[in-house]
Amino acid sequence: MPDTPKLLIQDVTCRFGSTLALARTSLQVRPGEFIAIVGPSGCGKSTLMNVVAGLQRPTEGRVLLDGTDVTGHTGHVGYMFQKDLLVPWRTVTGNIVLGAALTRRATRTDRAEARELAGRYGLGDFVDHFPHALSGGMRQRVALMRTLAFHRDILLLDEPFGALDSQTRFEMQQWLLQVWADSERTVLFITHDVDEAVFLADRVVVMSARPGRISASHQVDLPRPRTLDTVTSPEFTDLKRQVLSALYAARDESGQEVARA
């Protein structure tokens, strides 16, 4: 298991015209690992995600999934954005099975699974609701269920809770950890929020801007399951300080402002 990385980002470079959006970047991700990526706006986090998702073909480098080259190919990972992007004309169930509907056809089994998923995570009474009838937190939850129901080993979560209020956010973080523990997926989680990164991840990767690159990586060995107590523990504070100083060091190098953290 430690020999083959689940995901291998190998010397990926992204250039848009004359701008270098992403300098040579490499990252190895173990199966089942939860990685948080923090960094200021414009550090190429989202570009990196788009490359992994296959939406963006890198100028150089490769993306290997279980040793297979998937560079520039879509459909291999579950991708979730900051906006929930629920399709307004599909019900909760319809949104959860979107991946199946787009790639083949959503079967009765897909729908049953979607309803089961919604039921298990507290949206059982809303399976036939249209998204406009749900709260922000519920919508984001449906978006994550849609990503889960797409059945890919890797989840790319691009600031999924960025638009939520802090209380809902904390609930969602705990819920995500529960889901992650249930499903044994590998997660790449982008955030601006250092607290969130340290709370969730096995490893926090710090990126810096101009050009975007990985500037530091911190192992987070806090015990799981993580609770409210985790956030107030000295280890947590210590790690947070390390990540913050890495972020600020990155800022000083590139002369760029670090986003709210």
Partner: peptide, 16 residues
């Protein structure tokens, strides 16, 4: 972004 999401799931142009 909705189009990007659908594309990331491997949806072809007709399905999209």
């Amino acid at each position: 972004d909705m189009v990007a999401l659908a594309r990331s799931m491997g949806g072809n142009p007709v399905k999209l």
